[in-house]
Simulated scan of single mutants.
Amino acid sequence: MTDQTWNPLLREQLALHRTSQLRARLDGLTDDEYFWEPAPHCWNVRPRGTGTAPVRAGSGAMTIDFAMPQPDPPPFTTIAWRLGHVIVGVLAVRNATHFGRAATDYQSFEYAPTAAAALTQLDTEYATWLAGVESLGETGLTRPCGEAGFSEGPYAGRPLAALVLHINRELIHHLAEVCLLRDLYLYTHEQTRQEAS
């Protein structure tokens, strides 16, 4: 039996999901879909000064809704919010902590004002993450995450491989939600169009 190398397998799990199931499903995302609020009082990404959430984070023209502590139950979140969470909280913060990206967090990030800009941010952070994981090789996966930033909490004493698996789960989970919201938007708006004709 040959020695198994785990780094390619960890990257393949995410890359295969992205290429075979995810990325094509995000193509053509419109701004209407991106900002669509399918329920009352959604958390969203909004023009600065227009949000009502207790925390409105972001450094540019757009802010993302938050609250600390999070309400129970939490508000429903839009595609824009979910992409913002994935881009910043799941990827960019970890890319900064472990792979040399400029430091960022929810407060300092400049959120995308359009769906196309958000997908560009997602592609950039995803590519940085995947290249960073590859750069770890086999031995780097066994290195402890360390107390690198607020994001590593329960992973601080665990190997980086555990964090990579967590990020894979987060990306698959949240981006599947985005795809489901696209389906809901399509069928909701299709029904509205049929009723109007």
Rank of each mutant, 00 (worst) to 15 (best):
P40A: 02
P40E: 01
P40S: 00
H41I: 00
H41C: 01
H41Q: 05
C42D: 03
C42A: 05
C42G: 03
W43T: 01
W43G: 00
W43M: 03
N44F: 03
N44G: 09
N44Y: 05
N44S: 15
V45S: 00
V45A: 02
V45N: 01
V45C: 06
R46S: 04
R46F: 02
R46W: 06
R46K: 14
P47G: 08
P47N: 09
P47R: 15
P47K: 15
R48P: 03
R48Q: 12
R48L: 04
R48I: 05
G49W: 01
G49A: 11
G49I: 09
T50D: 04
T50H: 10
T50M: 06
G51V: 12
G51W: 06
T52D: 06
T52M: 10
T52H: 10
T52G: 05
T52C: 10
T52E: 07
T52Q: 09
A53G: 07
A53F: 11
P54F: 13
P54E: 10
P54I: 13
P54W: 08
V55K: 09
V55S: 14
V55D: 15
V55I: 15
R56F: 04
R56N: 13
R56A: 15
R56P: 05
R56M: 13
A57I: 02
A57P: 06
A57C: 05
G58Y: 04
S59E: 08
S59I: 07
S59N: 13
S59M: 07
G60M: 13
G60N: 13
G60T: 15
G60H: 14
A61M: 12
A61Y: 09
A61N: 14
M62P: 10
M62F: 13
M62Y: 11
M62E: 06
M62I: 14
T63F: 07
T63K: 05
T63Y: 04
I64V: 12
I64L: 10
I64A: 07
I64S: 01
I64T: 03
I64H: 03
D65G: 12
D65A: 14
F66L: 15
F66E: 14
F66W: 14
A67N: 07
A67T: 09
P69T: 08
P69C: 07
P69L: 09
Q70M: 03
Q70I: 04
Q70W: 00
P71M: 02
P71Q: 01
D72V: 05
D72C: 05
D72K: 07
D72Y: 02
P73S: 10
P73Q: 07
P74C: 04
P74V: 06
P74M: 08
P74A: 09
P74L: 05
F76V: 06
T77Q: 10
T77E: 01
T77G: 02
T78L: 01
T78W: 03
T78Q: 03
T78S: 04
I79A: 04
I79L: 04
I79T: 07
I79H: 04
I79W: 05
A80M: 07
A80K: 11
A80C: 08
A80I: 05
W81T: 02
W81S: 00
R82D: 08
R82L: 11
R82S: 12
L83R: 13
L83W: 12
G84P: 11
G84Y: 06
G84F: 12
G84A: 15
H85G: 13
H85R: 14
H85E: 13
H85A: 12
V86S: 15
V86Y: 12
V86F: 12
V86C: 15
I87P: 08
I87Q: 06
